[in-house]
Design a protein around this nucleic acid. Structure first.
Lengths: 340, 340
DNA sequence: ACGGAGCCTGCATTTTTATGCAACCCTGTG
DNA sequence: CACAGGGTTGCATAAAAATGCAGGCTCCGT
């Protein structure tokens, strides 16, 4: 120290302090006062490029920090976690007060409707796996759009035999087509044919053929994810699967299905003779869809969802916060297991 | 509430929640993941314009917030306050451990040197009011630049009579010219002529004329601010002013000077016969300078500084934090007074 | 049911920002 | 002392972001 309080060796750090002051001042002008870089440059007699670099430096030095305050009822961290650990394109986790099927479906439906409205492109070919409650909820929440927004709405799984379910399937497809201003492409066959032969026969129909020819062209599809044990609707439909068939699937390790295409815990397809009776999109076809959106939530579907995500067919998952946390937890445990 | 937990009327706010989720997600992608708006748009199937608007909305809704963390030792608030209340273009407040003249001058000098280095344009004509300690400190801290960076360094106040001070004045000017690669323009006359007539005589010199002709062309000038009572150097210089003259100035309300041009508390010039003996830039000429930078700090100069800022001649003030707070406080009190 | 105000969208364009480049300067080294 | 190497800068330009505009939709009021 010199008598006047100056340090001899302090030059560098001192100069740095002055630089930081300048950086900070520029940040102030830019972010708080809303000035353009060029204006700041002019005011301070330096080039716009330098101002730009100073601002970059301000971020680097931690002088400016941008925080994202997630609005309540959003779960960015859960979404991130699921997105990255299952390699999905997008994940939407919705808030939900109780972990009950009905409430969850309603919320997921809303979110899916919003997703559809926001991201639907002109001329898309939409696939709907028509008999999921959740998808019905989605359709109920879609606002009508101008005609011709989407090109087709294609039913990707036959309506089941029983009339009430037939109605449901048809209704969902027709309604969605109407709302998106698209042409509906119904699939007037049972989702599960009585036999392999019956399936062949049904699929020979030219109407059916026409619809199926669109499967490969679907750009956006919505499916529910079903657990192994038959859903309420499936059961009501007239018990399409026999007890024995379920057992067979279980034995082969199946954990769930999308449009009645089953897969195991690891996402591997579980092929049984049942496949030869189902009339609808296959897992491979789902994989080929530009954006294959799965809608599902609920305690009993957790395993089914995890498996579905591992099939590689799902691009977007919309689920609830409870199920989302279970998925994350499951994934963590799985990894621990794998590391051992 | 419906039995499944859905609300009938909740549509709007619910949809809003989904929108906010999207906005938040976009903010995440943009700020955290560093994606381009176009990439986000592509990923989410919407236009880049929409993404831009969403991001603006994110700021508006308070989802993204950018904070500026001022580096320690910076005083943005003080600077703002002084800048706005005195209508200055820039204010630099430097950190300083003690409220002592010598330490303050050293710090201000450093800051001024940095300011000079950063903001000096090619071909500028720099004015220096050569006999302030603070300006000497500045010059000591300037790093040499390539030749021709500045065009001229003009001495804006005569060097005083006594040889040591003469040297000081010359040294400052020459050194700064050397450092900035400019041509020096010395002012080889006393700052205070013995009489009005002597002044006329001295100013007739062609060298002197030449230097003075540059006064109107100075683009950047540095002055110290002096209190009413003579500074140490002024005193040492051979007591250029008489006791009587000081009294006269005080009687006229003078509170300080820049280059021996005095003004009162309100910044109004205080003209006395002294003016006819001073050889140097006038207040009006200072006002005409593109960037007139005043360097000063210290308890005994506070009033002088406040007055100087009100002359309208000062564009940039560089001072210390102690003096800065005193200025702010003074200004606040002044306003209270005015409102009564 | 019709028509207009208000709002939102995407497109095309402008405005603003970032960056490759060449020149330059300081520094440390052979 | 010359010179390579790392780090600046400003300029020109590419890249990215913002915005005016026109068309279309929704919501009201008539």
């Amino acid at each position: 120290m010199l008598p006047d309080g100056t340090e001899r060796e302090g030059g560098v750090s001192m100069s740095r302090a002055h630089e930081l002051r300048l950086v900070s001042r520029i940040a102030q002008m830019y972010h708080k006062e809303g000035l353009r870089q060029a204006e700041i440059a002019q005011h301070l007699r330096l080039s716009q490029a330098t101002v730009s670099r100073m601002l970059k430096r301000a971020v680097h030095e931690g002088i400016v920090r941008t925080t994202i305050i997630p609005p309540p009822g959003t779960f960015g961290d859960l979404e991130d976690c699921i997105r990255s650990s299952f390699g999905l394109s997008e994940v939407i986790v919705v808030d939900c007060t109780e972990d009950r099927e009905a409430a969850i479906m309603a919320r997921i439906g809303e979110a899916a409707a919003h997703f559809l409205e926001v991201t639907l492109q002109d001329g898309e070919i939409i696939g709907v796996s028509s008999w999921s409650q959740t998808i019905l909820r989605m359709v109920e929440n879609v606002h009508p759009m101008r005609v011709g927004r989407a090109a087709y709405v294609v039913q990707t799984l036959g309506g089941l035999g029983a009339p009430n379910v037939q109605d449901h399937a048809t209704h969902v497809t027709m309604r969605l087509a109407q709302l998106t201003g698209a042409q509906p492409r119904l699939f007037s066959v049972p989702g599960v044919a009585p036999s392999r032969e019956a399936r062949e026969l049904l699929m020979a129909d030219s109407f059916v053929q026409e619809t199926m020819s669109l499967f490969g062209k679907v750009t956006l599809s919505f499916v529910g994810i079903g657990p192994l044990s038959p859903s309420e609707m499936l059961a009501r439909s007239g018990n399409a699967f026999s007890e024995a068939e379920i057992d067979q699937l279980a034995g082969a390790g199946a954990v769930g299905n999308m449009s009645l295409r089953f897969y195991d815990q690891k996402g591997q397809p579980v092929r049984t003779r049942l496949d030869d009776r189902v009339i609808g999109m296959t897992l491979d076809e789902m994989r080929g869809v530009g954006r294959h959106v799965a809608l599902a939530g609920g305690r009993n579907k957790t395993e089914a969802i995890a498996g579905a995500l591992r099939t590689g067919a799902v691009d977007v998952l919309i689920t609830d916060k409870f199920t989302a946390s279970r998925l994350v937890q499951m994934q963590v445990q799985g990894q621990e297991h794998a590391t051992l």
